[in-house]
């Protein structure tokens, strides 16, 4: 059990060689966002609450038809969230605006996965079942998933849903950005294609930002000068334009730092190349060999 100096370095070398891990280097954190992703710009002033997007989403993704698909009235009485049966839902909000006839003006807001540029869920996923694709879509691979739900904990928008009633093979359910369609030329996400008023504009994210800024500039007094998702959590593929404060339509106020930045920075600076565990191992081994030597030394016998 005696650990000589030479042995100690041998061990260090062996441990170092066995940890030829891919470079998760301790350098400064950098965004892993795709260069030119697609995106969607949702213009809340254009949405009329027809819920066709819900219907088309369910059809395209082979989900059960939405609850009362043609209802534009009582369905809005409760605030809904996307769940394992619906990747997107439209909610109605009365934000205090009134029209020329003193009637409250509703604002409709569609909710779905925002497809963040640096998604927290992708960073969190233990097995890499969630990936950020070149198209901008955050994709889910059920064959890797172990069902730990850490992605749901991580998501700042509370989007991933879970098949809680499936005992053996529950899946994480969320908007796919219709990956199979948009990755083909001219393909559109189901919701954007069906929307009668083009409240959802589909295109390259960079283009959409220009369109959005132009729309804000050309319609003074209509839009808030803020494209939600341009900077929130480092930017999202889906963005929103609105005439009412985003908080009132349940789009949470978020920092501009990408969610995974802090955790990845700390994690990598501690564990890249497993330097800290190896160092700790070495220090402890040195300690152990010293105490062992002391214990073996007959002069110290008896002392604890």
């Amino acid at each position: 059990m005696l650990l000589s100096r030479r042995n100690f370095f041998k061990i260090l070398g062996a441990a170092g060689a066995s940890t030829a891990l891919p470079a998760g280097s301790a350098q400064a954190w950098s965004s892993k966002a795709p260069d030119d992703p697609y995106g969607c710009l949702v213009d809340l002033t254009r949405c009329v609450g027809c819920r066709k997007c819900e219907e088309e989403c369910a059809r395209v993704n082979e989900l059960p038809a939405p609850e009362r698909p043609n209802c534009q009235c009582t369905i809005f009485e409760k605030n809904r969230r996307p769940d394992d049966d619906a990747f997107t839902v439209v909610n109605r909000y009365f934000t205090g605006r009134i029209d020329n006839f003193n009637k409250p003006v509703p604002t409709y807001a569609k909710v779905q996965c925002m497809h963040c540029q640096d998604p927290a869920c992708v960073s969190a996923c233990i097995v890499g079942a969630l990936t950020k694709d070149e198209t901008g879509a955050v994709r889910y691979n059920k064959d890797k998933c172990i069902g730990c739900r850490y992605c749901m904990v991580a998501c700042p928008f509370e989007i991933p849903a879970y098949e809680y009633d499936d005992p053996i093979t529950p899946k994480v359910m969320k908007c796919t950005f219709c990956y199979d369609r948009i990755s083909k030329d001219g393909g559109l996400p189901g919701c954007a294609g069906i929307c009668p008023t083009e409240a959802i504009t589909f295109g390259k994210r960079s283009t959409l930002l220009k369109v959005g800024k132009k729309r804000v500039k050309e319609n003074p007094g209509i839009y808030l000068d803020h494209i939600y998702g341009e900077k929130e959590v480092g930017g999202t593929s889906w963005m929103y334009l609105s005439s009412v404060p985003f908080k009132k339509v349940k789009l949470p106020g978020l920092p501009e730092t990408p969610s995974p930045k802090l955790s990845e920075t700390i994690h990598h600076s501690l564990f890249s190349y497993l330097w800290s565990p190896i160092a700790l191992f070495g220090v402890l081994a040195a300690f152990m060999s010293r105490t062992k030597k002391e214990a073996d030394n007959p002069d110290n016998k008896g002392g604890v």
């Binding site: 009329v48 029209d99 083009e198 390259k204």
Partner: peptide, 29 residues
């Protein structure tokens, strides 16, 4: 066509109809 990448700000025909009709009908009640 909607979402023409060369003219991203130009809305498609379906949206043009709907935006025009619905907005005006709402304004005029």
């Amino acid at each position: 066509d909607a979402f023409n990448p060369e003219r991203p700000e130009r809305i498609g025909l379906k949206a043009a109809y709907h935006q025009q009709c619905i907005a005006c009908h709402k304004d005029e009640a």
